[in-house]
């Protein structure tokens, strides 16, 4: 199952490391990653494959905790919602 992780918050060192470590611990494979600073805000989008190991809802719980520790907002959403809204 594919999901998209988006991370938004104040830029500081170690955000990518923290998020990717949390994902690796759950055997979630990062397939694509892009990152920019928009108006001083750190914005990262990761395309992930969750395999059969973990549901999106469970991963959301894990990443919510990681986000709180890192001081950023992390969302994980099933990729179907983006496909539904942006592709015909």
């Amino acid at each position: 199952m594919k999901a998209i992780v988006s991370v938004i918050g104040k830029d500081k060192s170690g955000i990518i490391a923290k998020v990717s470590t949390a994902l690796a611990e759950k055997n979630v494979n990062i397939e694509d990653i892009s990152q920019t600073i928009v108006q001083g805000n750190f914005t990262m989008i990761m395309m992930c494959d969750l395999g059969e190991n973990i549901s999106v809802a469970e991963l959301a719980g894990v990443l919510d905790k990681t986000g709180k520790e890192a001081g950023v907002i992390i969302r994980v959403q099933h990729e179907d919602i983006f496909n539904a809204m942006h592709t015909l």
């Binding site: 988006s6 914005t43 969302r75």
Partner: peptide
């Protein structure tokens, strides 16, 4: 999906 589309939904 483009980054803008993803951010638009978010």
């Amino acid at each position: 999906l483009s980054k803008n589309e993803i951010l638009e939904t978010v």
